[in-house]
Design a binder for these strands. Structure first.
Lengths: 189, 189
DNA sequence: TATTAGGTGTACTGATCGGTAAACCATGTC
DNA sequence: GACATGGTTTACCGATCAGTACACCTAATA
């Protein structure tokens, strides 16, 4: 089972889409930048949209894997991990190849909620929220799903400001807010 | 001084760009949907990008005008107005023509920070923050500019979740958080 | 009445869009 | 050796892209 070439394509396409946008990236550009012939691309994916969806799926597993692994590396307890999420975000924002949230961009470019690309993107934030709720529950916090929604809101807001804000430290701003929310959600009050 | 036709163009183009995206909207589509000939369009704007910038400027004044006017209508004191912002956002999210933040989309489609469209969009969030800081100062709150940054973060997060979230009440979630932040920033403690 | 400004429609440019056709080439397996 | 698999190159399709050229219309002004 040699999926090598297909995986290579999706991996490179993901980077190009992320850096360049979806609609702004033509198939000819994908050919030249990946070094993979157009015929091969269309042998693996029937349409450009299918390739975009595969890219979003790869990015989804990558980002979630990275984020929650980094949270575990930075903190020992579930409660501290929730706070550490914003430190991980801060690291992400300062990476040279940071270009905002790929899923927010996907929703921007494909607005129709029925469009499979839009669905794939909105699924991502739902998965993040669900995973945060699990950790909040593991930490013994009150109303974990409500808290998870608030933390997801803070995360998305921080990403937007990191992308659109002139300077500032949105990750740390969000962290300060998150600490207050988490303190209030601890059963000991 | 008859700016009528040009204003009509920008107004209609803004609605189309907002509903449809920038790159996804071709000039020919603008011609058919506005009823204004392509020759006229290019007599007023040298390039499509120039028209987009004019649209963003119109949208900027419209949105800021609407938001802060609505805040004043909903609440009497500056302090209550800051909280009322999230009620105004909630109204916006439930309008049938809500399609997310036009400026976030502009940044998504034109990522280069040097691109004038990107600048125009990031300017918008800076203007919102500045205006919030003024109100926070008027309310006598501590560290008004820091609070304004936090409120802007909450606002942007709420908009993203309203666009990408499956259901939920992001505006009210953000409002609950904002109330806590504002309470902590009141000098009486 | 002559001129000018602002508008229109039509037709066009070269480039690029997503996607396809056909012939070819290496690899490994039966 | 036959043959399928997975890849390549090259050329092409019709449609659409942003933007232009040109001739024409109309209304206000001088």
């Amino acid at each position: 089972m040699r999926q090598t070439k297909r995986d290579e394509l999706v991996e490179k396409a993901t980077a190009i889409f992320y850096r360049n946008g979806f609609q702004a990236t033509g198939m000819d550009r994908l050919v030249t930048e990946t070094g993979i012939s157009k015929t091969s691309i269309y042998k693996h994916f029937k349409t450009k949209d299918d390739l975009i969806i595969a890219s979003l799926q790869l990015r989804d597993t990558f980002i979630r894997g990275w984020l929650f692994r980094r949270m575990e590396e930075l903190a020992a307890t579930p409660l501290e991990q929730l706070i550490a999420m914003f430190d991980a975000l801060d690291e992400w924002f300062h990476q040279p190849d940071f270009h905002g949230c790929m899923f927010a961009k996907a929703c921007s470019e494909y607005q129709d909620p029925e469009h499979p690309i839009n669905r794939e993107a909105t699924d991502h934030v739902a998965r993040i929220s669900a995973q945060l709720a699990i950790i909040a529950g593991r930490a013994g916090l009150r109303q974990p799903s409500e808290l998870a929604r608030q933390l997801a809101l803070l995360k998305e807001g921080a990403v937007v400001l990191a992308t659109m804000g002139r300077g500032g430290t949105p990750a740390l701003d969000a962290k300060a807010i998150a600490i207050k929310l988490i303190n209030e959600a601890t059963p000991g009050k």
